[in-house]
Simulated assay, not measured.
Amino acid sequence: MLYINVRARKAFILMASALSSLAFGSYAANAHSVNGAHQNLQLNISGQISPKCGLSFPDNEADVVLTERAGTTSLPFAVSCNQRMNVQLRSLNGGLQHTEVGRAPRFNGFANFVPYTLTFSIDSEGARDVSADSREMTSPVQGTVGQIPFESNGSLTLAWAATPPLLGGQYRDVVEIRISGY
């Protein structure tokens, strides 16, 4: 038969309580030094979000109906960008060029090359358009939107002036659009 008196039992419970406080960290809210004085700790935390900027067009080819009269066509796109955006526009041919005869001289008064103006626009408050003439874009033309567009829509507008009658056939150009943050 084991007999524990009341005083020993209270001492045992107090000692078990003190040991459980030490074992389970009841001191987590404040750090104490050995002598009981409070100690303040400082933890510096930093984080980083990777920059991203991207465009997506419904299709990577656009068919334009050309006429001798001035005209425009707009191509919609979506943009996802978490930083201010720079835009670089470049044209392979410097305009819409006849695919069979290139930029050879005119044929009996018919044109075989159509210069155009390209305008890059973002539907974001305060955003600036970036616009350039196709002949200037044979070297990259740079501009800045000036805003962080986040998840927005935009359009690429192609506008051409009236021309002499056009030689029949296909006309083609390749436009390279590069976007980056700053």
Rank of each mutant, 00 (worst) to 15 (best):
R90G: 12
S80C: 10
L75S: 02
S80P: 03
L66E: 05
E68P: 13
C81H: 09
S91M: 06
N60A: 14
C81Q: 12
V65T: 15
A62Q: 14
T73V: 13
S91E: 07
V65I: 14
A78Y: 04
G71Q: 01
N60G: 10
A78H: 05
R84Q: 07
N82F: 08
V65L: 14
T67M: 01
A70C: 07
V64M: 10
V87W: 09
C81M: 11
R84C: 07
T73F: 00
N60L: 14
R84A: 11
E68Y: 14
F77D: 07
P76I: 02
S80M: 13
R69F: 00
M85K: 03
Q83V: 07
S80K: 11
T67N: 03
L75I: 13
T67D: 03
N82P: 03
S91D: 07
F77V: 02
V87P: 04
L75V: 12
N82Y: 04
R69W: 00
N82M: 06
R90N: 13
G71A: 02
T72L: 02
N86C: 02
T73E: 11
R84D: 06
L89N: 05
G71E: 01
Q83M: 08
A70T: 01
N82C: 05
Q83E: 08
A70H: 03
V79H: 14
T73W: 01
Q83L: 10
G71P: 00
E68L: 09
M85N: 04
E68T: 10
N60Y: 13
N82D: 10
A62K: 05
R90T: 13
V79P: 14
N60R: 11
T73C: 04
S91R: 03
P76H: 12
G71T: 00
S91Y: 08
T67F: 01
V64I: 15
F77K: 08
F77E: 05
V87F: 08
R90H: 12
Q88R: 09
E61A: 12
Q88F: 04
S74R: 10
N86W: 04
Q88M: 06
R69Q: 01
R69K: 11
N86Y: 04
Q88S: 11
R69I: 00
L66W: 02
S74D: 14
M85F: 09
N82W: 06
V79Y: 11
G71V: 01
N60D: 14
Q83C: 08
A78N: 08
C81S: 13
E68Q: 15
A78V: 05
T67R: 00
V87K: 08
M85Y: 06
S80Q: 15
S74W: 12
V65E: 15
Q88A: 08
N86A: 03
Q88V: 05
T72R: 01
V79Q: 11
L75R: 04
V64H: 11
T73S: 06
D63M: 10
F77M: 06
A62S: 09
M85D: 03
A62G: 06
T73D: 03
P76G: 15
Q83R: 05
N82S: 04
R84L: 06
Q88Y: 06
V87L: 09
S74N: 13
T73R: 01
N60M: 09
R84T: 12
L66H: 03
